[in-house]
Simulated assay, not measured.
Amino acid sequence: MIRLVTPRTLFVVLGLACLLAVWLSLALGPVSLPMMDTLRAGLRLLGLPVNGAGLEQAELILGQIRLPRTLLGLAVGAVLALAGVAMQGLFRNPLADPGLVGVSSGAALGAAIAIVGSAWVGGIPEAFAPYLLSLCAFLGGLGVTALVYRLGRKDGQTSVATMLLAGIALTALASSAVGLFTYLADDATLRTLTFWNLGSLNGASYQRLWPLVLVAAGVALWLPRRAEALNAMLLGESEARHLGFEVEKLKRELVFCTALGVGAAVAAAGLIGFIGLVVPHLIRLLAGPDHRVLLPASLLAGASLLLFADLAARLVLAPAELPIGIVTAFIGAPFFLYLLLRGRA
């Protein structure tokens, strides 16, 4: 594969793009802030001694609304892109997606159970209610992924093809269960469930943010340590074993890492598609398949792309807000069709 840019150039461009995305995400919205006021208010929030005359409104908007939303977007985009790299490495297919192991559909089922079930049961303790949806979505994603992995195991070996087929079957089963809950829901819960399935960073808070940040940091620190093993997997499982890598252990770790990261991201922001497919493939086209470059570059690109998509969601129909899943689908679907046509050519 031809490398179009050097890794150093790629990281400089992606780093600048990420900084620009963060700055624009903090400055723009229903109430737009001047760029310099945004910078000064941000420095004051960090505790730096900056003249704060006339910055009270900017500090309030940044500290309570836009900063947690921006950090949530960075974490979600980064972890979805890293999970996409992990799945494409596991299946040795650049068109693989984190949803192939059932984590997204499992999280959607968990969310449906939480949204519709809480309306039926009622009486949820007030202290627990804000976390019920995220917890059920996270557990649903982990549960379905664990079942997919278990079905793919036989005689101490994990069959990637069997996992793929099991993931497709369980995704269809979970989707039908979500459809059943959608049919049984009343108007209020149906609206909540529909908008959650479209994904959004709206309503971000530090309480929702910190579990995802911990998971994203763990995934971002762990996956690059397996870059050499993922490079060896490109040659095939037998070749990777002959090179001294523990292939079965690597498969378990990749599946667990994907389930943990995507489950936490979906629990925090709902279903957001195409980031895990588009970003790794785009970076691979630019810089080649070396996972030592692919993983950190995908982290930066995923975080930047999701923030730019969130900006579009906020600004296109302002003061109304589009679900971010619609924006990423508009970006990802044409790119996916381009890849198909390019492959045919």
Rank of each mutant, 00 (worst) to 15 (best):
I275R: 00
V160F: 02
L201V: 13
V116F: 08
A329W: 01
V279A: 09
L82H: 08
N231H: 09
H291K: 04
D155W: 00
W196E: 06
Q88E: 09
T194E: 07
G73N: 04
S298P: 03
P224Q: 07
L260A: 13
P34S: 12
H242I: 11
A301T: 00
L299P: 00
G199I: 02
L337D: 00
G117C: 07
R225W: 13
L184P: 01
A216I: 02
G270R: 03
A297Y: 11
G156A: 01
T328R: 12
L235H: 09
L135E: 08
L180T: 04
P319T: 14
P334K: 03
L285D: 04
G123L: 07
E126C: 00
A107I: 03
V22F: 12
V103Q: 06
A53D: 15
T328L: 02
S118Y: 07
T258S: 05
L306C: 00
L82K: 00
A240T: 13
G143V: 09
V219C: 13
L74S: 09
L173F: 15
V262Y: 09
C136N: 07
G143H: 12
L311D: 09
V178M: 06
I2W: 15
G244S: 06
G236L: 05
I331C: 14
G89C: 10
E248C: 11
G15V: 01
T194Y: 15
A127P: 02
L10Y: 14
A220E: 05
V293T: 12
P30V: 15
P319K: 13
L295E: 07
P334N: 01
G302M: 03
L139F: 15
S105P: 04
R314A: 05
L322E: 15
L307C: 04
I113D: 05
A303P: 08
V121E: 08
K154L: 12
I2C: 01
Y338L: 13
P94Y: 08
A216L: 01
K251H: 03
G47K: 10
I124P: 04
V178S: 07
T258W: 03
A174R: 06
H281C: 11
K249R: 14
L72N: 10
L132K: 12
R40I: 04
A119F: 10
L82Q: 13
V215F: 08
A297W: 14
G106A: 06
L254F: 09
T6Q: 08
F181Y: 12
P319Y: 10
A268F: 01
L165Y: 10
G84Y: 01
G140W: 02
G156P: 12
F138K: 03
S304C: 11
L339T: 10
G140Y: 02
A232V: 13
L209N: 10
L164Y: 01
V262H: 07
A108W: 03
S134R: 00
L132D: 09
N202M: 10
I272M: 06
T162R: 12
R8L: 14
A127W: 10
A129G: 00
L294A: 12
L230F: 08
G117P: 02
L165C: 07
L14T: 03
W23P: 00
L285V: 09
M1E: 11
A96G: 11
L71N: 10
S32D: 15
A83I: 00
